[in-house]
Amino acid sequence: MSIEIQGIGKRFGDFVALEDVTLEVEAGSLTALLGPSGSGKSTLLRIVAGLEQPDAGTVRLDGEDVTVTPPQARGVGFVFQHYAAFKHMTVRKNVAFGLEVRRRPKSEVAARVDELLELVQLRGLADRYPAQLSGGQRQRMALARALAVEPSVLLLDEPFGALDARVRKELRRWLRRLHDEQHVTTVIVTHDQEEAMDVADRIALMHEGRIQQIGDPRELYDAPVNDFVRSFFGPVVETADGLVRPHDLSLSHEPGPTSFEAMVTRVVHLGFEVRVDLLDADGRAFSAQLTRDEEAELELESGQIVFVSPRNGVDASVGTPGLGVGDEVVE
């Protein structure tokens, strides 16, 4: 089922949470709403679910205007960052909740719950209470609960935000596989660009209540429309020609036509790649990313003076100058 968001605006007192947001989510796709905290991404998701009322604009599900429809009549599944587990119910009861309030026959409920517990690999824990589960298990239970009622749209609000790094990686791969099997139109809110790129087909990057750019992960990384988008997808370095990423810098012991001088402050080995922290003549710190072999050839040491230039073929002219992001983007 498709989602059409048209001209949505929302204020909380004086704070403008969303301003004229328009977004179309294709049926069966997995879209990420990405942005820093306070960018309005969660508010937008809650408006789609009906948990928040917009001040302006419309929300359509599969062409039908649901802007004023209460959440229980929208047929959406919602997964919360902090699980929102029903603490006084067992895992089985939690998953069955949506079916029981719809007064489905008992045998049907039991069969569907078993099927879902199998899907989220919680079959053995069906009679436990949420307090007896780990964070990852609780979130899988919440997902099963949301999927039980066969929602037309699945909305996830920072679903892995409260989990540790290893579990979140595992769960997002698992979510992607689940999506590939079930094809439920899914929107996931996250502040982690790596997570968004890992799971989503399309990313809508938000900042200060507006969508900055919509596209597939590669588009946003390779062809950012402005400096905010560019800097959001990893650190950037300001050179004479514009902003480039650390892995687009090359270091040399010989000066070149576009190079500038910098002092090596630290060489950090991160497995295959090596991060070189540098200080330029104006005292600004930045870093360059090299491969292990490149670094070995240069034999870098802290205190050395090297010549830094953008790699050949890097177009450093993308990005609108004058947005004032220079200070925060140089690492």
Binding site: P71, K87, V101, R102
Partner: peptide
């Protein structure tokens, strides 16, 4: 109110949400 919101998105009416959650 997160549990109550979750109940609403799962299709529970205001009364069902109160009674069950």
């Amino acid at each position: 109110d997160e549990q109550e919101q979750a109940a609403r998105t799962l299709g529970a009416s205001a009364w069902q949400t109160f009674r069950r959650i």
